[in-house]
Design a protein around this nucleic acid. Structure first.
Lengths: 156, 156
DNA sequence: ACTATCTCGTCAACCACGTTGACTATCTTA
DNA sequence: TAAGATAGTCAACGTGGTTGACGAGATAGT
């Protein structure tokens, strides 16, 4: 890393580098485990869909993008076999977006790999330092997107 | 934040949230200071160009993208008045990409704002915690992109 | 019950940012 | 000098985002 004389520049650069390291490692491992076409954005979408399923509009709200953008991303993930659409019997306008078995598999494997990556960081830095980073970021970071009030994503 | 039972998921989500918080705050402030058309990617490009200027190919290497992608980004920043192109008298193939006065102004203001944002985090978390986050990320994050071996970006 | 309004999904046009492949012009080296 | 490497650009394309418009269906008010 270059160390500019302005210290503040290091913070966003390192945050980005840390995030990209995790994501790149995740997708390298997912590709090895049979999910080579899963792209960085897709993981967040699969999480946002959740076990209960959702609609394109609500998905857009959860991800902080327009409903049209969410719809197009759902199209791609449907084509890849990770999501499917079903009519809502209670409301003919809505189309329920749900995880397929493949989508669920990708999500579960992501969770496992993220755990392993966190363990790797903990082995280098110490578990307390990793937890401290998480606590600190929880304090200062504003999650104005990916707000998921869906409990038990990976539950039983 | 939702807290999934898999703890590893919190780490990338929080890293992303932290990064986006910094970037969103930066651009809100830059827009206030006369740079409303500066987008998140542009800051990194301006840094990678540096005071000495560079070429599209080298810029692509620094940013970890193809020379064509770098060239197109330079096109946009030229159109916005942040960069210009000049012929290299020593090599007729090369076109030197340089910061304009406006580009330099945007870069300097970014540095100032990032310093202020870092101070804000330090006021909340404590300066030692912020420094610890930076140290830890320097240890585990692999900066396979934005490698800038250019000293003195914002020098004298 | 009917009308006005809101919401959901979709289509179209567009922009930003990335890719690969091909090509010309130019420098470098064997 | 011929062969090869490099710089920039063009074209075609993929992905992820935007806004605006629109029809179909649900809902609230009189």
């Amino acid at each position: 890393m270059a160390t500019p004389d302005r210290p503040g520049f290091a913070l966003p650069l390192l945050m980005l580098a840390g995030f990209r390291t995790l994501i790149d490692d995740l997708h390298a491992e997912l590709a090895r485990q049979g999910h080579p076409d899963l792209r960085p954005v897709h993981g967040f979408v699969l999480q946002a869909v959740g076990m209960a399923g959702t609609t394109a509009s609500e998905l857009g709200q959860r991800l902080g993008v327009s409903k049209q953008a969410a719809g197009k991303t759902v199209d791609r993930l449907v084509a890849l076999g990770y999501l499917d659409r079903a009519d809502d019997p209670a409301d003919a306008r809505r189309k329920l977006v749900r995880l397929t078995d493949r989508g669920l598999d990708g999500l579960r494997r992501s969770a496992v790999v993220f755990d392993q990556l966190r363990d790797r960081w903990a082995a280098t830095l110490g578990a307390d330092r990793v937890a401290a980073i998480e606590d600190d970021l929880r304090t200062v970071a504003q999650p104005n997107f990916f707000r998921l009030d869906v409990p038990g994503w990976f539950g039983t």
